[in-house]
Amino acid sequence: MKKIWLLIVFVCVLSACSESDRNNKNPYIPSYAVNLSVDMNLPLYSNLKYASNGVIVPNYGAKGIIIFNTGSGYNAFDAACPNQEISSCTAMTIDGINAVCSCDKTSYSLFTGLGNKEYPLKQYKVQVSGTVIHVYN
C-alpha cells in the first residue's frame, strides 16, 4: 500500500498536481452551484470519521454529492456518471473505495476520481472545520 501512495505522490510531483489544476470541464454534467455542510457528529455522516468510508448526500449537484474520507483528507465528487448523459442514469453508488455508474458499470476511484473512461468524476472543493465538512465550488 505504501508503494501505491508513493507512486501517486511521485506522479503528482512530476505533473504538478494541485486541486486547482483539476479539469472539471465535462459536457455531460452541468455546473451547479454547490454549498453543502455535513456534521460528522450526526449518525447519517458518522462513518466519514474513518478512512475509506463515503456517503452520498442527495439533492446537491447534478445527482448528489459523494463525500469520501481518504485517510489524509476528504474528497467530494458529483454522483452523476461523468461519461453519460445526465438523464440516462441514476446516481452512482459507492462500492468500497469506488463509485460505480448505474449505466455502464464503470468504476471510479474515490481517491483520485479516475476511471477507465474519457472524463473523471466531477470534483468539488472541500474544507474541514472540526467535525463539519464543507463542500463547495
Rank of each mutant, 00 (worst) to 15 (best):
M1C: 09
M1D: 12
K2S: 05
K3N: 07
I4L: 10
I4A: 05
L6I: 09
L6F: 09
V9Y: 10
V13Y: 08
V13E: 01
L14K: 11
A16K: 12
N23Q: 14
N26R: 11
N35A: 05
N35D: 05
D39G: 09
M40I: 09
L42R: 10
P43C: 06
L44K: 13
L44R: 13
K49W: 07
A51E: 11
V57Y: 00
V57F: 02
N59Q: 12
A62R: 00
K63R: 09
K63A: 09
I65R: 00
F68S: 10
T70Q: 12
G71E: 13
S72N: 05
S72P: 00
A76L: 04
A80F: 03
E85N: 10
I86R: 05
T90G: 03
T90I: 05
T90P: 04
A91N: 02
T93D: 06
I94G: 05
D95W: 08
D95K: 10
G96W: 09
I97H: 12
I97G: 09
A99E: 14
S102P: 04
S102Y: 00
C103N: 10
K105L: 11
K105F: 04
T106E: 15
S107K: 15
Y108A: 06
S109G: 14
L110A: 07
L110E: 10
L114M: 13
G115T: 07
Y119G: 01
Y119C: 00
L121F: 01
Y124F: 15
K125S: 15
V126E: 14
Q127L: 15
Q127D: 15
Q127S: 15
S129Y: 00
T131D: 15
I133Y: 07
I133M: 11
V135Y: 01
